[in-house]
Design a protein around this nucleic acid. Structure first.
Ligand code: FES
Ligand code: FES
Lengths: 152, 152
DNA sequence: GTAAAAAAGGACACAAATATCCTTTTTTAA
DNA sequence: TTAAAAAAGGATATTTGTGTCCTTTTTTAC
């Protein structure tokens, strides 16, 4: 569905929104650990998310790090996908035709259209803050279980 | 959403089901042209689809080619995804956690679960024949428009 | 049985995605 | 004003996905 880049972007942003604030900025080390992602690769992705006044804010130097402004918390999840250029998932033809088109549809178009619409809505109508709220209800996770997992 | 491999697999299978039959087998040349895909790469993908008595049947030699049995036409679209090992799209966590789990859900799980269920149903409940029927209603396509396209 | 047609298979080439490492710049605190 | 901390940036490595090409095997028609 999504690339690793997009997945890390989503998890990292949620993590920063969850644990960080303007006066408790988070370092890349902590973020990568918190979401089980490769540190340097995640750093690159955070660069995309901070560029052009986008989703994440950052400050260099001691006590620096990443955080989200209140404005950013209200952004839709889609803004994260846009920052890493991964919006195609909500626009592409499921069979890979050059364009998904109402006038030149593939045989799965009618069925897939409805699903795509919901996907689109999920990413557009859900704000980052809503995910934080959902997480804070308890028993939600954005990292992988550490250690050995019992086979079910 | 899907890999090129899966997209070509779906389009090729639909094309073969549409245009071919046991006594009108299709060659790789025609198939690749019919769905706008790279010929040799598509050939490799068709190998996956013919192995282990799966979705597509093939015969070598003169008058050989690819076709679908009546049995195969009744298979769900999901069988194509299985053949190219691309089922993960209907099982993965949208945030890329190792597993999508009801007991260890990510903050998007509740919303995404409903969408994933529909995706799953689409692939499981739709047969290859149904796509052929849909196509035969007219004004459906599995190839890309040739030549210059007027900008809208 | 020989030649041609067609898929199957193997090896390789290229590109994109993922990941790591090292240097540079900015900022703060002492 | 200097040292340390932290992100930004650049270069490169690794892996995976995509794509091509050539040889081999199977099958058919003559
Ligand atoms: S044309 Fe294929 S999904 Fe719309
Ligand atoms: S746990 Fe993330 S989608 Fe189910």
């Amino acid at each position: 569905m999504l690339s690793k880049t997009a997945e890390y972007a989503l998890r990292a942003t949620i993590y920063i929104a969850l644990k960080g604030s303007e006066d408790n900025k988070l370092g890349i080390e902590e973020i990568a650990q918190g979401i089980d992602s490769p540190k340097s690769f995640t750093a690159k992705i955070l660069q995309l998310l901070t560029q052009n006044n986008r989703v994440i804010s950052s400050v260099r130097g001691p006590n620096g790090g990443f955080f989200l402004t209140d404005r950013a918390r209200k952004l839709p999840v889609k803004a994260i996908l846009e920052a890493v250029e991964e919006e195609s998932v909500i626009t592409k033809c499921v069979l890979g035709l050059k364009e998904c088109s109402e006038t030149r549809p593939c045989p799965m178009h009618t069925q897939y259209k409805a699903i795509k619409k919901q996907l689109k809505q999920m990413f557009e109508k859900t704000s980052i803050q809503q995910l934080v709220d959902e997480f804070n209800k308890g028993n939600y996770f954005i990292d992988n279980l550490k250690g050995v997992r019992k086979p079910c």
